[in-house]
């Protein structure tokens, strides 16, 4: 398979994937897009292996790195400006706050991911693979523990105080219908 043929097939797969995802999301189906993405990635990997020509070389990786850094910077600044605008105007529409918070967390996650990968390539790539897996495992456990603490700590919950259900934090569910006896 030539590079040109691979690119044409890749374009067709991307178009089909976009149509499938669009239809599935419109019908509120989550499983189909995930499966479609998985199948598309697998198909592209198989086809890439069959292409004889060189897909990318060191110059492409260098250009890719520069493009990725610039894209991250542009996205972060854009998201922060939009987030501040939406958060400042949250009184106009209640959904603005949710969108602003989602944007803020997205930027934070992107920055964290970039920092971790950057440190991996700048320092950890010299370490033995076993040590790297241990460090990654430790980081995952810490993240899961923090997420678990946040989820199960009752931070956003309804508390029973003086015979009444009192909102604690911002629970996204209504007060319990059971009687409060405290």
């Amino acid at each position: 398979m030539t590079l040109k043929q691979f690119k044409v097939i890749k374009l067709i797969i991307v178009i089909i994937l976009a149509v499938v995802i669009g239809l599935a999301v419109a019908r509120e189906n989550f499983l189909v897009p995930v499966m479609a993405i998985g199948i598309a990635i697998a198909a592209l990997q198989i086809l890439r292996g069959k292409a004889k020509e060189i897909m990318a070389d060191e110059r492409d990786y260098e250009v890719g790195g520069k493009a990725a850094r610039l894209a991250i910077r542009i996205f972060s600044w854009f998201a922060i400006i939009v987030m501040l605008f939406l958060y400042a105007n949250r009184s106009l529409n209640p959904s603005y706050e949710a969108v602003a918070i989602t944007l803020a967390y997205s930027v934070c996650f992107l920055m964290l991911l970039y920092t971790l990968i950057f440190h991996y390539y700048s320092k950890f790539s010299l370490l033995a693979k076993k040590k790297i897996y241990l460090i990654i495992g430790f980081v995952i456990i810490v993240i899961l523990a923090l997420a678990g603490l946040r989820l199960f700590s009752g931070e956003d919950d309804w508390l029973c105080q003086n015979g009444q259900w009192v909102m604690h934090g911002h629970p996204d569910f209504p007060a319990p219908i059971t009687e409060c006896r405290k």
């Binding site: 060189i54 990318a56 060191e58 110059r59 492409d60």
Partner: peptide
């Protein structure tokens, strides 16, 4: 040259 050096032709141009 690109084929022998294992890079894309555009890289040789650059």
């Amino acid at each position: 040259l690109a084929r022998l050096a294992n890079v894309r032709r555009e890289t040789i141009v650059f």
